[in-house]
Amino acid sequence: MASGASHVARILYKEIVAGDLRKILAQSNDSDTGGGARDFRFGSFKTLLPVIRQMFPKKVKENRKRDGI
């Protein structure tokens, strides 16, 4: 938790709606052709970017690993 005025906690959240719950439960693939991605999207990136930049003004690069790479 943030302590003091200089340590503000910034949180970006998304409300989980019925369609998202279907994704979590792997029931969102309505056809037998494959797919069924479980990513959650916020909407128009172009619209949200100015707000996100205000919320998170400093860029921090983090190295991530996937499958040991």
Rank of each mutant, 00 (worst) to 15 (best):
Q27E: 15
V17M: 01
P57K: 13
I16S: 02
L48S: 13
R66L: 02
P57Q: 00
R38H: 06
R38A: 01
A37V: 10
S28Q: 04
R64E: 09
F56D: 00
S28C: 10
R64T: 10
D67P: 00
G36M: 13
K61L: 04
T47D: 15
P57C: 04
K46V: 09
R53L: 13
Y13S: 10
K58E: 05
F56P: 07
D30S: 15
I16H: 07
Y13G: 07
S44L: 10
Q54V: 00
R10V: 10
L12Q: 10
V8G: 12
R10L: 08
N29E: 14
F45P: 00
K46R: 14
G68H: 13
V8I: 10
F42H: 01
G36S: 09
I24Y: 08
F40E: 06
A9H: 06
K23D: 00
I52N: 06
L25T: 01
R10I: 04
F45H: 03
I52E: 08
G4L: 14
T33Y: 09
G35N: 15
A18N: 14
E15I: 13
I11P: 00
I11N: 14
I24P: 03
F42P: 02
D67Y: 09
K58Y: 15
S44R: 08
K58H: 03
K61A: 11
A18V: 15
I16G: 11
I24K: 10
P57D: 04
K46I: 02
R22I: 08
R53F: 02
G35V: 11
A26V: 06
S3C: 12
A37G: 13
V17H: 15
G4S: 07
A18D: 15
S44H: 12
S6R: 03
R41T: 12
K14Q: 11
G35L: 14
K58M: 03
R53Y: 01
E15K: 08
R64S: 09
P50D: 09
D32L: 09
T47F: 04
Q27S: 06
T47W: 00
M1T: 04
S28T: 08
N63T: 05
H7Q: 12
T33G: 07
K23Y: 05
A2H: 06
K59Y: 07
T47S: 03
